[in-house]
Simulated assay, not measured.
Amino acid sequence: MELQRNKIAMVSPSHNAYSETFIQAQKNGLNGTIYYYYGGVLPLYLEGYGKLMLPSISWVVKIKRKLGFKTFNADETAFMQSLKKNKIQVILAQYGPTADRLVKICKKINIPLITHFHGYDASIKVVIENCNNYRDVFAYSTYVIAVSVAMQEKLIQLGCPKEKVLYNPCGPHPSFVEMQPAFSEPAFIGLGRFVDKKAPYYTILAFSQVLQQYPQALLIIGGKGELYEVCHNLIRYLKIENSVVLPGILTQEQFKNYLSTSLAFVQHSVTALSGDQEGTPVAVLEASAAGLPVLATFHVGIPDVIIDGETGLLVAEHDVSAMAEKMKLLLGNRELAMQLGKKGKERIKNNFTMERHLGKIDILINKVIKKNE
Rank of each mutant, 00 (worst) to 15 (best):
P281L: 05
R236D: 12
A150W: 02
L273G: 14
G248C: 02
I128T: 07
H299R: 13
I145N: 08
G96I: 11
D196Q: 13
S19M: 03
L331S: 07
H232R: 10
I204F: 06
Y37D: 08
P43T: 12
V103I: 09
E317G: 03
L46H: 08
D121V: 05
V103Y: 12
K198P: 06
L273R: 07
V284Y: 09
Y38W: 15
P172Y: 11
M1K: 13
K326I: 02
N86M: 10
H318D: 14
T115D: 03
F69T: 06
K84L: 11
I204N: 14
I91N: 07
D304K: 11
S184H: 10
D136W: 01
M10P: 08
Q277W: 05
V147N: 02
N31K: 15
S12I: 00
G332M: 06
K162R: 13
N233M: 11
N350F: 02
L314P: 09
Y134E: 03
A322V: 09
Y214V: 11
K154S: 14
D304L: 10
K62N: 12
V368Q: 07
G39K: 12
F79Q: 09
S148I: 10
Y201L: 03
E178C: 07
Q339H: 14
N130Y: 00
E47P: 10
H232Y: 00
Y201N: 12
V126K: 14
A93N: 06
M327T: 13
Y167W: 12
K154Y: 12
Q24P: 00
D75G: 01
P13H: 01
Y120G: 07
E317F: 03
P293V: 10
G223V: 06
N86P: 05
H116V: 09
A99Q: 09
N372I: 02
E373H: 11
D319N: 15
P13E: 05
T142I: 09
G68D: 04
G332P: 11
Q339S: 13
L191R: 06
P181Q: 13
G301P: 01
I57H: 00
G40T: 04
V137Q: 07
H173P: 01
M179A: 02
S274G: 03
A199M: 04
Q213D: 10
K64A: 15
F117N: 08
F138T: 03
G171M: 12
L166R: 14
E310W: 06
I348P: 05
E153T: 15
Y37G: 08
N6Q: 07
P13G: 00
I124L: 05
G275Y: 02
I145Y: 04
T33Q: 07
A9T: 13
G119K: 01
Y36G: 04
S269D: 01
S56L: 06
T71M: 14
N130R: 09
I124K: 09
L3E: 11
V147K: 01
L218F: 12
R356N: 10
D136F: 04
E310T: 08
I88G: 03
A324N: 14
Q209K: 15
K164H: 06
H299L: 14
G225T: 02
I189C: 08
R5T: 06
P181I: 04
R236C: 01
Q216I: 01
I91L: 09
I111E: 08
A272V: 08
F79E: 10
H116A: 06
D196V: 03
